[in-house]
Every structure is written in structure tokens, then in C-alpha cells.
Amino acid sequence: MTTSASARPGLWSIRGPISRNTFWTLAAIGLLTPVLLWWGIALSGWVEKVFMPSPAAVWDRTLIWFDEDNLVGDAIISTYRVSAGWAMSAAIALPIGLLIGTFRPVQALLEPLTDFVRYMPAVAFIPLVMLWIGIDEGSKIAIIFIGTFFQMVLMVAEDVRRVPTPQIEAAQTMGATRAEVIRLVLLPSAKPALLDTLRITLGWAWTYLVVAELVAANSGLGYAILKAQRFLQTDKIFAGIILIGAIGLVSDQLFRFLHRKAFPWLHFK
């Protein structure tokens, strides 16, 4: 091999360039390989069906679930629980995180406490939540809230702290008051990072769904997974997990789309 005149960096150079075609080819391989492996293993008969149902079986089960078992209803109630817990968390975490990230006394007062509580496992709060809130919708939402809130506060505070100091000081030397610095600089400057934080924490809220639906639920995707476990309906467990993943993926893409629309200056080439 001779060295060519145009020394184009190879595919494996650090942070090297990649063409669109190569990227999507590799992405397709990455996505399809596990599915094909799964299919292959299921078809080969090495593993018993109870442990690993075939993709076709999972698909069939999903259709049955849809036709006879109110899949749409389960998806809606679960989405509602996750959204409600996450939205309540956001409604409180945004102002508190803003205060922690802006005023040092508030940081001293609340951040160590939040840091402490966030290491407590949300699952362990279930008995307390049942005792305090009962076993209806509120308790499921509360579990998701507990799992999301404390992390969210710390991330919001960090987003606000990351606003470059010169942006704040420039406003002050133009005569901005404290309230104006918060409203006209800190908030708009942190907004893109805040939207990312909301996107990431919504993903975490979904991971608490199954836990939340441990509490005396009789509907929902998490509940369906738990019930399927009792009857060894492995194909339904697979279907439930994949559905939750798919809903998460769609909401994530929605947030990314919103990010591009709301903050065009961050997406210029």
C-alpha cells in the first residue's frame, strides 16, 4: 500500500470523521444484531420458551394484550402516573434548584440535605408512602416523585450554577437588579440545560414505574409485567419492557425536537 497524497484520517482515528452512510449502517447493525441474536437463540431451541420466548411470540402476545387486555389503557394510566410524578417533581425542583444555584445560603441550607436524601432508595419508601398516602393513585405518583425529585433538584441547581459569571456581571454593570438578573439572565441562560435535565429525569421517572405499580395497582404496564411474572408469561414481560422502552424513546425524541425548535442558536452548523 502506498501513502496517498490526501491523508484522510481513518475510521478509527480519535474523534475522526464519519460519513452519514457509514453512521447509519453501523447504527442499523447495532440495533438489529441483538434482535437477530434473540431470534436465533429462540429458534434454535437451546433455551426453553419460558426463559426466552421468540420475537414472534412476543409480538403475538402484544396483539392479544391489545385486543383483549386493554394494552392502550395500561399504557395511558402508566404514562399518566409517570408524567404526574415527574411534573410535580419539576414544579417544585425548578424553583428550589434555581434558589440553590443562585443564593449560597439556600445552597448551604438545602444541598447537603438533598444529597443525603437522594441516596435513600425510593423502593424503601413504599411502606411509608402506603401508610401516609394510602394505596390509591396518589401513592403511585408519590413513589415516582420520590425517585425523581431529589436528583432533579441537584441537577437544576448545577444547571443554574453553570451560567457563565461574565453574563451575570455584564448585566449588573448595566444596572440590572437582583430580580432582573434572575429573570433576564440566569433563567434564559440555563433554559437549554434545564430542558435537558427534564428530559433525562423523565427517563428516570419511567424506571420507577414498576416499583410504583407494586403498590396495590390493578392496571398499568408495570403492573402487567408483575402479573405476567406470577403466571410465568415471559412473552408478556418482554412485551411490557419493550413497550416502556419505546414510550421512553418517543418522549426523548420529542424533547430533542423541542430543544432544536426552542433553542435554534445552539444548533447552528
Partner: peptide
């Protein structure tokens, strides 16, 4: 406001 400051960088509002 009587003493405006110009910084080396990161002071413009990107939005």
C-alpha cells in the same frame, strides 16, 4: 449602570 464593563469572553447572551 454608570460603570459598564466589557469582559474577555462569555459575556454575550447567546439566546
Amino acid at each position: 449602570a454608570d460603570r459598564a464593563m466589557v469582559f474577555q469572553h462569555y459575556s454575550l447572551y447567546p439566546w
